[in-house]
Design a protein around this nucleic acid. Sequence first.
DNA 1: CGCCATATTGATCGGGGTCAACGGCTGTGG
DNA 2: CCACAGCCGTTGACCCCGATCAATATGGCG
Lengths: 249, 249
Amino acid sequence: MRPNAQTLIRKLEHVTLLADEEKQVLIEAVVRTRDLRPNEDLIREGEQPTDRHVILEGVLCRYKLLHEGKRQITGFQIAGDLCDLCGLLMGRMDHSVGTLTPVTVGVIPHQTLRRIMECHPRVAEALWQETLIDASIAREWIANLGRRKAYQRLAHLLCEMSVRLKAIGQVTDGMSFEWPLTQGEVADAMGLSTVHVSRTLQQLRVEGLVITQGDEIRVLDWDRLQEAGDFTPDYLFLGSDLGNRGRYP
Amino acid sequence: MRPNAQTLIRKLEHVTLLADEEKQVLIEAVVRTRDLRPNEDLIREGEQPTDRHVILEGVLCRYKLLHEGKRQITGFQIAGDLCDLCGLLMGRMDHSVGTLTPVTVGVIPHQTLRRIMECHPRVAEALWQETLIDASIAREWIANLGRRKAYQRLAHLLCEMSVRLKAIGQVTDGMSFEWPLTQGEVADAMGLSTVHVSRTLQQLRVEGLVITQGDEIRVLDWDRLQEAGDFTPDYLFLGSDLGNRGRYP
DNA sequence: CGCCATATTGATCGGGGTCAACGGCTGTGG
DNA sequence: CCACAGCCGTTGACCCCGATCAATATGGCG
């Protein structure tokens, strides 16, 4: 049952090791799953939902709508991510979360999570860390949007997604992964127009950095892609440096 | 002694009410103060500092350096803000924090803060909330950089700063406040060039939305400024809606 | 007073937005 | 089975916001 609830654990343990009991409690916290179709909202800005959600499968995005029908995607979320932790403590969402693909989420009742946090401070800390990583990614996006131009920006996004997907085992044979985003969605994330996303992606293909085949992207030259995007994975807090992981008894 | 340590308390209580004892503990956690001059780094990206800092006076910014000497400021910090909470849990800074003005910070030893968090879960929660608000502001900046053009972007920044400064009592007679930022710094925050910041600010002045007098900015027409910047203060979590404040016993 | 950082203004250039047309793909209904 | 409609990606033409370069105030500060 719930074969994928492990993804959350795996994610949390990138930074903080958990005891078996803590893992068990978390897995049991998922009282049910919920399936969503593409382009559905899981939560909307301003809402005050009573359940929390872990992504078990699929891709979602945080986004904000601004006047004139413009949209800005502020981050992507993949399996193992917690969608709405901010709602847990702030009581109200400052942004919406919507699906980009078919999605399965695990539902964790607000109260359950609160109780877990009280009894298991290390779990609370791991969750806190998740939100800090989220913030770190957001800051990197600010830099990406503010100071890099389209070509570098897209390269950077591809690097980020490929590292994050790799961390959850969704990169096959080293260099290719599912890319379920339309160019319009990429545009809304990178602050560009769809037209320019198309041209710029093409550029990346012409340069031989990536190729796309259907819903899949294959990175042909990781080093040059990373360089093009001025990318370093530090801000994702995934890698071999493990934060204060050593504190586990 | 430390007349300004209250600013932290006031800030935290925007979202969570604290018991007197908790406030006292926090105030005593500040073992000393430290003065910095303008353009000094408090912490640098990658560092793993052992103290935490509360701003008692002055303005700082989070920033990242990218190749080619470019800089992106990812957020401003004012009195009452905690500079480096991310370092507390992540063990490593993903960005630098530097001063923009003369600054006084309160120093809180890492271990002290950890102990406080263990003994006073509500304080831990309040701190967590601070980091969540930080993340919320970052997301709003992403939208600002990605989907608004210079004029709206600057208007939005002015709105944000004036609301935040008002919340800590640094807006005099309703509409004017210190603006210690150079146009170069504004440019690095808004993803623009200094030249264009100059022109756009001028535009705001010509339109009669603000006037600048020395280091001070006065908002002449709040409604139009807010409209120009497509600004709503919800994401700052300061206002009359107080999150889950009710939970205080 | 001269020096340096900052602000302003003008001129020019280019990245990327916008508008529009077109082709490919998928789904749906006659 | 085909016709048609949408959605998505691609390509071209044109234009504008904002970057860049450069020169000129302005204003502390030694």
